[in-house]
Design a protein around this nucleic acid. Structure first.
Length: 253
DNA sequence: GTTCACCACTAGGAGGCATC
DNA sequence: GATGCCTCCTAGTGGTGAAC
């Protein structure tokens, strides 16, 4: 309705006619509420009456015309202001999902409800924003941890490619697996103490664990122990084999 | 001093709801 | 159905402070 008023080039005269003819709800107020019907106009009525009674008084006439001009301009300005406010409410109702009608009946919320629901929606959006920021921070930590792990593996790979070692000194696949198994079993002993009640606890616990239990000297010790153990087992196996080879000869002698 | 924007007040219509 | 009451909305107007 307000938009219509604006589109039609609203003026006081038009208001009183257009309002009465076209607008079912707000119209009648505009149509019947002529300037002289307002309680505020009692003083003006007196002024205009004085002006009529003393038509020769040019000052009074000028004063009256000024008042009328001012009143007219003021009325238009107020109408413009109310249109802007109404547009604001309409925009709010379009933008805020909870303010939108859920059927095609043209149902419209009151201005108070539009404000109230808009405030609720802004609060909801603020909560969503905080939640997403938390999730983003957790994911960022995870990315950092994975990049560190990736960097470690790349360094190891480069080192291995640069220094493959003598062919005879290289480990067999079975030996590599035993080393890997030994390292992982020992790592798991400490890794299982990381709190894992939720994903956030897990991701935030990985970095301290890496710094505490994945130090080079620790890995080196594990590797050394494992290789020593493997060498000892190989030696014992070799001795056993030699003994078995010697036993048949001794029995015959 | 004038203009502009805001606010408060008043008047009145429209619609919903309860009561008779 | 008529009526009264309440709520919501719109419009006109005067007052007022800030900006020009």
């Amino acid at each position: 309705m307000g938009e219509n008023l604006k589109e039609e080039g609203y003026s006081m005269e038009q208001d009183q006619e257009v309002g009465g003819k076209n607008y079912s709800r707000c119209s009648s107020a505009g149509s019947t509420h002529t300037p002289n019907s307002s309680a505020h106009n009692s003083d003006d009525d007196d002024d205009s009456g004085d002006a009529r009674h003393s038509a020769a008084n040019s000052n009074s006439t000028l004063n009256l015309s000024y008042k009328e001009r001012r009143r007219s301009a003021h009325t238009q300005a107020e109408q413009k202001r109310r249109d802007a406010i109404k547009k604001g409410y309409d925009s709010l109702q379009e933008l805020v999902p909870r303010c939108q009608p859920n059927d095609s009946s043209g149902y419209k919320l009151s201005k108070a409800l539009i404000l109230q629901k808009s405030i609720e929606y802004i609060g909801y959006l603020n909560q969503q924003k905080l939640k997403q920021e938390d999730e983003g921070a957790a994911l960022q930590k995870e990315v950092t941890a994975l990049r560190i792990i990736q960097s470690g593996y790349e360094t190891m790979l480069q080192h291995q490619q640069a220094n493959p070692g003598p062919k005879e000194a290289r480990l067999t696949d079975e030996a590599k697996f035993q080393v890997f198994q030994a390292i992982m079993e020992e790592m798991f002993e400490t890794f299982q103490h990381i709190p894992m009640d939720n994903f956030k606890q897990l991701t935030s616990g990985i970095i301290p664990w890496l710094e505490e239990h994945c130090k080079p000297h620790i890995l080196r010790n594990i590797l050394s122990r494992t290789l020593q153990q493997m060498a000892q087992e190989a030696q014992e196996k070799q001795q056993l084999q030699q003994a078995m080879e010697q036993e048949p000869g001794e029995s015959f002698s």
